[in-house]
């Protein structure tokens, strides 16, 4: 079980511990099965290249889930991921690492709870940001 993060621990500007994933083609098959996303650009190299892609590419939503996993690993069991928004800006290819990371932007207490705003992104092997986005989490306070 990951360590519990508390609202008091949050310092705006601090980094979120990265999460690195290297999905292979089998992982894409598993994602297609779980999500119902059978777009051939994710499993048929010839089809993908005919559509001006470099080859089979990783499902954007799978990479978005990796960002979600980075956040839930970081906030611990009592934290809640309330909002996640990402824009797909580039391609990730199977067999290459996707590095998910982020930074704390702001913290504030309002009627929704102890909110922490994040800037998040995923990078490919070349350091290009393939997903960029934001997230909001709610964290507990210490007793």
């Amino acid at each position: 079980m990951n360590k519990q993060l508390y609202y008091e621990d949050i310092v705006p500007g601090s980094d979120i511990p990265p999460c690195i994933k290297t999905p292979d083609k089998m992982q894409l098959v598993k994602w297609a099965g779980a999500s119902g996303d059978y777009n051939p650009i994710h499993y048929d190299k010839d089809y993908a290249m005919e559509h001006n892609l470099p080859g089979v590419i990783v499902h954007g939503q799978l990479a978005a889930c990796y960002l979600g996993q980075m956040i839930t690993d970081w906030i611990g069991e009592k934290g809640q991921l309330k909002k996640l928004a990402v824009t797909y800006r580039g391609m990730n290819t199977p067999g290459e690492p996707i590095t998910c990371t982020g930074v704390v932007v702001n913290k504030q207490i309002d009627k929704e709870g102890n909110l922490v705003s994040l800037k998040i992104w995923a990078e490919n092997l070349n350091g290009e940001k393939t997903l960029t986005g934001t997230a909001v989490v709610v964290l507990p306070v210490r007793e």
């Binding site: 059978y38 777009n39 051939p40 650009i41 089809y47 559509h51 001006n52 499902h59 954007g60 939503q61 978005a64 809640q80 991921l81 309330k82 909002k83 996640l84 928004a85 990402v86 824009t87 797909y88």
Partner: peptide
Amino acid sequence: LNEVPSLTILHGSTELES
């Protein structure tokens, strides 16, 4: 959309409120 093989379908963005 997948029924037309000549189409390219890409994902632009995702927003989730939980």
